[in-house]
Simulated scan of single mutants.
Amino acid sequence: MADNSNSTVLVLVGSLRAASVNRQLAELAVETAPAGVTLALFDRLGELPFYNEDIDTGSVPEPVAALREAAGRADAALVITPEYNGSIPGVLKNAIDWLSRPFGSSALKDKPLAVVGAALGQYGGVWAHDETRKSFGIAGPRVVEDLDLSIPSASLDGKHPRENAEVVARLRDIVGKLVAEIG
């Protein structure tokens, strides 16, 4: 088994809202990361222009370059997202589109990726999480299908996810298993 200490996991959050439960899950993942593992939150998805092949040339917009550089430095990725209208939030889908290029050699190519999150409704965002796995799977990362956590946000009773011992344990376990997938 590979020594995965000093590993970096890119964290992408599909919600731009400062007080979102998914942002809180990202904070919790950072707080509970295994020793020697850095979770690097890329918090600039709202700055990315809509994907346009005409501007995806040698000199891409700075936020795109920063995203691709962060993905290139990472050994794995953790995507934490809500569900909007039964699917992927637009800001996250746009990031997937930018990260899928250059086609066949994206910055996340073959790196392990897990998708988790919380959403309104009794299923906690399962549809969005499944669609996110599908899109990223096509875009280049190696999606680890069995690392999933879909939390109905009402189950948190308005509290930060760190106050729910089961969520803390499951998220910590997912991050640990994701890091174990690093080649």
Rank of each mutant, 00 (worst) to 15 (best):
N85T: 14
V9N: 12
M1E: 03
G158I: 10
I55C: 08
P34T: 10
I88W: 03
S59F: 02
K93T: 15
T132L: 06
R73H: 11
V144D: 08
F42T: 14
W127I: 15
S100K: 11
G104Y: 08
T38H: 10
T57M: 05
V143K: 07
N22P: 14
G140R: 10
V60I: 05
V21N: 07
V168A: 10
S87R: 00
P61Y: 05
L78Y: 03
G137N: 11
V168F: 09
F50V: 14
G72C: 12
P102Y: 01
A95Y: 13
D157Y: 11
A165V: 11
Y84R: 07
G140P: 13
Y51C: 00
A33W: 03
G125E: 00
Y51I: 02
D148Y: 14
A74G: 13
D3F: 01
D148M: 14
P102H: 00
A19E: 15
E83W: 01
G46C: 05
N94I: 11
G46R: 04
R23E: 15
R68K: 10
G176M: 11
T8P: 07
N6W: 03
L48A: 02
H160Y: 07
N85G: 12
G158H: 10
T8I: 12
P102M: 00
L28R: 00
R17Y: 02
P89L: 02
F103Y: 12
L67K: 02
K109V: 03
N85W: 10
Y51H: 12
H129M: 13
S5T: 15
A180F: 02
L92V: 01
E47L: 05
L178A: 07
L113S: 08
T8F: 03
R73C: 04
V91A: 07
A65D: 15
I151F: 00
N22D: 12
W98I: 07
L41G: 00
D97N: 04
D75E: 01
L149I: 05
R172A: 15
G117S: 04
S20M: 06
N6S: 15
Q24M: 13
V30P: 07
L41T: 01
F50N: 12
A26E: 09
A180D: 14
V175P: 11
W127A: 04
F42M: 01
P102E: 02
D146W: 05
E69I: 04
S106E: 04
V143Q: 05
A70C: 10
E131M: 09
R133H: 10
I138H: 09
L48P: 12
A180G: 11
D3G: 11
S5G: 14
A95S: 09
K159A: 15
D157Q: 12
